[in-house]
Amino acid sequence: MPKSFFIDTSRCTACRGCQLACKEWNELPPNKTKQTGSHQNPPDLNPNNYKLVRFSEHLENDTVQWYFFPDQCRHCLEPPCKDTIEGYVPGAATQDPETGAVLYTEKTKEVPFEEVRSSCPYDIPRKAADGRLVKCTMCNERVSRGLLPACVKACPTGTMNFGDRDKMLELAKKRLAEVKKTHPKAMLADADSVNVIYLVLDDPKKYHKTVVAQRSDGLSRKQFLAQIFAPIRRPVEGIGQSKS
């Protein structure tokens, strides 16, 4: 049984404990950032930030909505990035069968970054200065030793949850039913295909463009995956099959 995150954005206060805890646990170097008119900083995921709280604000019917989205790798059940990477260098990406964590190795240095990045329906992978491809690791070394991922451990509000996939799905569905009473547009983002299940209260586009898997051209995850895998040199094994 893989592990899953359940990220309940209805409880997020954007305290950024998760963003900092991730950075500190992984001892990632700081970025030189600037204030550009938003609290969201750094402005995007980058090789030094595997986790980023995104901020988006809206004024509708005279009511302010300020949405927070702690973005990170979704650890897809069938990770397209892994298939892309392995299409170039077998063994450069792996998926821990126990936890479901999608992990990149040193060998990703040899993989064309842009192809991997564009194969990710959530625009997660980034390239480090030394050429490695990097992203959230699910704190797999912690998880495999029975500890919570650093971001989940730090979360004060119950936004970040982690555990066996079935339990997380159950919790997600329960929370969805509760929040739907006041937020009829609430939904779980791609719950069936990812191990990082987000609950959002509103149209996911109001949070961030890749909350659910699709690109700006409006392709669904399925269409998207069909398209991105077409040119891959090596036959793709994982598509449509269950690995669990």
């Binding site: 950024r16 963003q19 900092l20 950075k23 500190e24 700081p30 970025n31 030189k32 950032t33 600037k34 204030q35 609290h39 900083n41 750094p42």
Partner: peptide
């Protein structure tokens, strides 16, 4: 630096 990164200016 990690905090300055999040609120720099």
């Amino acid at each position: 630096p990690n905090l300055l990164e999040a609120e720099p200016q």
